[in-house]
Computed example of a mutant assay.
Amino acid sequence: MPFNFWLVCTCLGALLLTEAQSRSIDREEQSLGDRVHRVVRDVASSLIAPQTESATLTRVQRSQVLLIENKCVSNTSCVDSKFGTNVPSDLVHCNADSGLCVCSQCFVRIDNTCEVIAPLCRNYSLDTMQCVENRKSQELTFLLSVFLSSVGAANFYIGDYVLGGVQLGLLVAAIIISVACICLPVIAIMCVEEEDDDYDWGECCVTVSAVTGLVLVVILVFAIACWWAADLAIFAYNGRTDLNGCPLIADL
């Protein structure tokens, strides 16, 4: 009996010792895995961080770096060769102190070089060596909207032929309906060949046609007047662009 008890105790002790060693090994492996994971993460962070910082620097300070690297040395170095070498200094010149190109009128500085970014609006003429304005005049557009808005003159001038055509169509429709208001009663009287003693059909036709035409004329005239007022406000504020998308010359 004592021998059996001792054998059981020995087996249980061996099992407990084996379980404890197994758990210790698992903890060591887990700890080793955590350490490896931390080391890999630190290495990856050290590799990625400089790239991210460099990318941020390139994004934020790209223009300044380019300006430092591309300092101009003469007026000729400020313009592209396609514009020639005799661009007037009042349009493009090099600031010797800062090394920056100074651009005016139709030129815009991009990476310390004067470029024409909107040739449909303003362009540089190689013949006259001056900037040429291709934009429409705000003053002329406003005057056309004041006196000839009903025929769409202002919209035709800036190249918006759709709106100009609609305005002209409304005016033509108002004229046609006004003429019809005068002619329809006469036609209605001529079409009534027989009159009923109890009811005057001719007078009824005249009244209906005249009232209908008058209502249509009032609606069209009201629409034309509202459009005229809207055009005045928009062109006075210079809130429209021409066919090429260029803003109007603010000369009002």
Rank of each mutant, 00 (worst) to 15 (best):
V151G: 02
A236T: 05
L16F: 11
R41N: 08
I224W: 01
F3M: 10
S137N: 02
L32C: 11
I110M: 12
E19C: 13
D26P: 00
A188G: 10
A49L: 14
F222V: 12
Q21R: 14
R41G: 07
T52Y: 06
P88T: 04
S89F: 04
V208W: 07
Q51A: 13
C121Y: 02
T207V: 10
D42Q: 14
V8Y: 10
C246P: 00
L220S: 01
A20V: 11
D242S: 03
S81K: 12
L32S: 14
C121M: 00
S63N: 11
L143H: 15
L170G: 03
A225L: 15
D160I: 01
L7G: 05
T76H: 07
H93Q: 14
L143K: 12
Q130R: 07
N155Q: 13
M1S: 13
G152E: 00
I182V: 15
Q30W: 08
I249T: 05
L214N: 13
L184Y: 12
H93R: 11
C94M: 04
V108D: 03
N112S: 06
V87P: 02
A225G: 09
D90C: 05
T241E: 07
E194Q: 15
D200C: 07
E194Y: 15
E133T: 06
C191A: 14
I189G: 10
D200N: 11
S63I: 13
G99A: 04
A233I: 14
C72Y: 01
R135K: 06
S81N: 08
D111W: 04
S46Q: 09
A20E: 08
G169V: 04
A153F: 02
P2K: 11
L243N: 14
V43Y: 10
V108K: 07
G159P: 01
Y161V: 04
L144E: 02
S77V: 04
C226K: 10
F142M: 12
